[in-house]
Design a protein around this nucleic acid. Sequence first.
DNA 1: CGGCATCCAAAAAGATACTG
DNA 2: CAGTATCTTTTTGGATGCCG
Lengths: 137, 137
Amino acid sequence: MQAGAQTTAQGAEESRLPGFPDVITADCPARNIMEHVVSRWGVLVLLALLEGTMRFSALRRRIGGVSEKMLAQTLQTLERDGLVLREAKPVIPPHVEYSLTPLGEQAALRVRPLAIWANDSVAAVTAAREGYDEARA
Amino acid sequence: MQAGAQTTAQGAEESRLPGFPDVITADCPARNIMEHVVSRWGVLVLLALLEGTMRFSALRRRIGGVSEKMLAQTLQTLERDGLVLREAKPVIPPHVEYSLTPLGEQAALRVRPLAIWANDSVAAVTAAREGYDEARA
DNA sequence: CGGCATCCAAAAAGATACTG
DNA sequence: CAGTATCTTTTTGGATGCCG
């Protein structure tokens, strides 16, 4: 789970920097993790699983527009990173359930505010785009 | 527009869910916004600009590994979405400054916890990957 | 049902050269 | 300096077919 990183709980904004870590600066491992989490389908999988354990097909139905291949690929990446738990029951036909690990839930809980923000900002962004496009017409 | 709406946000027509909006469900406009914000370089630009106004070249130096082309492209997208403000002084040589709009700052503030989490979780994720890889060797 | 392997089209990303 | 234009490479994603 959390490798002893949570020394001061949530109190400390963060142990590290004035602003934040060096994800921005270099090609560090944190960047790699970020890319998996905020990948096109990664965010949606995390959000979906925040609702609870789900089977592959249910997940596919829940996430609009994802192909079988991409969903499988995304799930594998997240599973490997320890964010998603895969439980396969050895029956025929196969029955596989996906859920969030504690680590994955942490990630998902940080993704959610972003999704809510995006949803709430549709009007503002749309207006901005119109102004932008108009100004260059 | 302001984030305070979150507590009792039923008033806003968007917030309809216990968990979150239907970004997951369909190919809605919110999804498009999300993709811009959490795009590979989008996150990093937002995080960088959270530190303050910056010129193009400074931004390029601040964000490791970004190409000139991708930075310009990302900035344009974010500017069009109304998240980034571009101010060009008509001098030679050109002097262009980039900063976050209030809307962009909202987005950036929601991205930051994710970046901090990623940074703090490097060890946990690395360990998970080793376990995963080992289990299939 | 829940994958994986393969092939192919499309989009993203990088390198480089050029311009106001 | 801050881009744009162009070209090439890499990655992504969809469509199939097969298998446990």
